[in-house]
Structures are given as C-alpha cells and as structure tokens.
C-alpha cells in the first residue's frame, strides 16, 4: 500500500504543509486566530482535574480495609454508565458528527 499511496503525497505538498505549520506555530499567541480554528477542529485539550492522577504509589503500610470477596460474575455495572445514551438514542448526532460539521 505504501509504495502506491506514497506517490499521491508529493514532496511539494509536504513542504507546503510543513511551511504552513511552521508559520502558524511561530506566530505570536495573540495573533493565532488561524490556530484557534485548528484548536476547535482538534478538540479542546482537557486536563485531568486532579494533577496527582499519577497511578498508584507504594506504601510500607498495611490496611484496615477488608478484602470483600464479592461474586463479580453476578454483578451488573451500575455506576455513571447508566447515564450514557443507548445506541438507539433519538438525539442522533454524536461527537464525531459535530466535529465534521465544524471542520467543513
């Protein structure tokens, strides 16, 4: 696939795109209205609220919590997933549809 499809991407178009990217990236932040559009296209960056979300740490302590041997095989998820829309939701458009509209 690569040998064939590569031909459709010319060196000139790569240069054009790289040149445009460099221009945008070099522009002062205040003047980046073009980049503001890109930002919309590529979704707003979302940071985790908790900057300590760093995975587990070790401890040299024990715990007073007791291991509860629940039977996972009989359990049904009942957290926030119950709020998610069903596949047949009449609201129709998902995030991707919305994204494509913006990009167009």
């Amino acid at each position: 696939m690569n040998a064939i499809t590569s031909k459709s991407i010319t060196a000139a178009s790569l240069a054009l795109a790289l040149g445009a990217a460099l221009t945008v990236a070099a522009a002062p932040a205040a003047a980046q209205d073009k980049m503001a559009d890109k930002e919309k296209c590529y979704g707003v960056a979302m940071k985790g609220k908790n900057d300590c979300r760093a995975g587990a740490g070790t401890t040299c302590a024990g715990t007073s919590k007791v291991d509860y041997q629940g039977n996972a095989w009989n359990l049904v998820p009942k957290g926030s997933c119950v709020k998610t829309a069903s596949p047949t939701s009449p609201t129709g458009f998902g995030q991707l549809a919305e994204f494509k509209e913006k990009k167009a």
Partner: peptide
C-alpha cells in the same frame, strides 16, 4: 484476633 485479643494493624492512616 480470633481469641478477641487486640490485633493492631500498621496502617499509617
């Protein structure tokens, strides 16, 4: 513990 005697847990909590 099983005999009802104190059993302390080093919980650092």
């Amino acid at each position: 513990d099983a005999a009802g005697d104190p059993l302390l847990i080093d919980s650092h909590g």
